[in-house]
Nucleic acid binder design. Sequence first.
DNA 1: CATATATTTAGATTATCATCTAAATATCAC
DNA 2: GTGATATTTAGATGATAATCTAAATATATG
Lengths: 96, 96
Amino acid sequence: MHETIKHESMFTAIADIQRRKILNILKRSEMSVAEIKSHFEFSGATLSHHLNILKNAELVRVRRQGQQRIYTLNLSVVEELLLIFNQIFVSKEDEK
Amino acid sequence: MHETIKHESMFTAIADIQRRKILNILKRSEMSVAEIKSHFEFSGATLSHHLNILKNAELVRVRRQGQQRIYTLNLSVVEELLLIFNQIFVSKEDEK
DNA sequence: CATATATTTAGATTATCATCTAAATATCAC
DNA sequence: GTGATATTTAGATGATAATCTAAATATATG
């Protein structure tokens, strides 16, 4: 009946609407921080903070490209999250 | 690219590990507050607070039975949440 | 109706979180 | 290497949220 730290970080990550919007945007294609930023009103520092939380939850990956950093949705972890979700709330098995 | 208030309350509701545990417990069968409480360490007031948040998100339903209140998992809303999940993070459609 | 039981509500406290500005770091182009 | 651009880090602030104790409400029972 306990939950790994990893699960915890995923649920925390998707709790915020701005971060869900970031994931939603990245669903279409990978993007630099500046491109992501163009969709929002808040500061670069705030965006960096959100990206860091998503990264820690492994929901996104980053790679360097010159001065830019390109963020990508980590689809396998998103799918894992869906499974966990199903396991906690729907399936007859206990949360493992 | 916006989200209803209802979605917001659902994501907030499942962000807390105690509330996810409550949902996980209710998956097996409906329960009185006292029964739910036996699974946790925190005070009754705290449990009541969590149940209220789950109720506002419509993830659980309550009915009276004498002095007790019986909480039930609202399966249709849990399923709805799974769909929203898929829509935001996986499917090619935008979040509606 | 008085007392016991079940649960919620009120109000306070502490911790966590989203956001900001300013400064730091890294890379590129000249 | 100097200046410009991209992004992150540090530190502060205000808002939200989790929890507690004490008090209130509702129901049941003798």
